[in-house]
Design a protein around this nucleic acid. Sequence first.
DNA 1: ACGCTGACTATTA
DNA 2: CTAATAGCCAGCG
Length: 137
Amino acid sequence: MSKPSPKKPAGRSRTPIREKLTTVRPSGEKDDNFFELVHAVARQIPKGRVTTYGAIAAALGARGSARMVGWAMISGHLVENPVPAHRVVNRTGLLTGRHHYNPPERMQKLLEKEGIKIKDNQVVDFARLFWDPSREL
DNA sequence: ACGCTGACTATTA
DNA sequence: CTAATAGCCAGCG
């Protein structure tokens, strides 16, 4: 990978997450809302496939903002159109977001229900199941 | 306003 | 392989 642009990525967007969660926004409203973009991409993840925080961030042009993607997942289950956040893992295929589920084992359960095998909180055959939004979308 | 935290990742030692 | 470091940036005390 190359990094010729030290400039700030386009992912910046102040996102009053609390307003987002408590306010129903009219359809067609799609501004610089980074979180909604993340949700939109995450919803495209095919069943039985997984992707990473970094891959989603990169697809949105915010290469270095993988953390914000994970953050967006937190609200992902509170919005009207639910986001399959369980299909998003870290770059090694580890289920780092499992602690946000109730109970934590639920994330693994959801993945297994889609035919994905999990061993030690890690996606088995991760490389093969990996779905790259910027390449396959 | 400042510093720390965190569902991350790439780099370096 | 592991560990430390540095970017990243919105929220919170």
